[in-house]
């Protein structure tokens, strides 16, 4: 089953820079895809278009039957509620506890309290942070904070999880732990698209790898290893 189909995608910024062009891609449900490429190659732009933070200048991005490229600003929240996003800098609210940070994503949906509690604790359990629910983000390590962010991203059972360099701020060992968590989530059926720099980790995971070079899809490796030199 196809979850995402990108056709003829182009993104030109107002400054005149073309970040992405001639881009086509199909993603199956349950895929785990790495998007790699040098800094400035356009991989972040691609991810940002997938959650409609950027609007493509041409082409279409169809996610679950909806063309995200045509989505109006006011309706973007409908898309965001169906997917989870994880960032390099975690983007947790420092004044909310771990539990509140996770529950936040459900509260805006107007779910009943019991359901919020159950789902949030499940998500925290999945990332192994059930016992830190009452802590504040600054009391946690970087890896733990990222796991909170992942819990928040998956708490609403999204079909798709987007990760923009989630391990960019973490040491190799912690990065590997995060990958284990993501792998676990992927096994439960969530499609994951992850932009990263970490060549070693990508090779170790043996997943589908997409190489973007200067805004173009250069290579699509079905399984794992890639040999291209990237900066």
């Amino acid at each position: 089953m196809e979850l995402i189909r990108i056709k003829d995608l182009e993104k030109k910024y107002k400054t005149g820079v073309t970040a992405i062009y001639d881009f086509d891609l199909k993603v199956k449900k349950g895929d785990f895809i790495f998007v790699i490429g040098a800094s400035g190659s356009g991989k972040s732009t691609l991810i940002r278009m997938l959650y409609r933070e950027e609007k493509p200048t041409k082409g279409s991005i169809i996610i679950g039957g909806v063309d995200v490229a045509k989505l109006r600003n006011r309706k973007v929240y409908k898309l965001r509620r169906k997917l989870g996003i994880v960032f390099q800098d975690f983007k947790l609210l420092p004044k909310l506890t771990v539990y509140e940070n996770v529950a936040f994503a459900l509260e805006i949906l107007g779910l009943p309290r019991d359901e919020i509690r159950k789902k949030s604790m499940n998500a925290l359990n999945l990332v192994g942070l059930k016992n830190k629910a009452k802590n504040y983000p600054d009391q946690l390590s970087g890896g733990e904070q990222q796991r909170v962010a992942i819990a928040r991203a998956i708490v609403n059972d999204p079909k798709l999880l987007l990760c923009d360099e989630p391990t960019g701020n973490l040491d190799p060992e912690t990065s590997w732990e995060i990958m284990q968590v993501l792998e676990e989530i992927n096994k439960l059926g969530t499609t994951i698209i992850m932009a990263t720099h970490d060549k070693e980790m990508v090779n170790r995971m043996k997943k589908r790898v997409i190489l973007i070079d200067a805004g173009r899809l250069k290579q699509d490796y079905a399984k794992g290893t890639y040999t291209h030199e990237i900066v």
Binding site: Y77, L93, F104
Partner: peptide, 16 residues
């Protein structure tokens, strides 16, 4: 504004 940005990212509508 960071708080607002995060709210938007996790799917809060404008009125939310």
């Amino acid at each position: 504004r960071k708080e607002i940005e995060i709210m938007r990212l996790v799917g809060a509508s404008n009125s939310n």
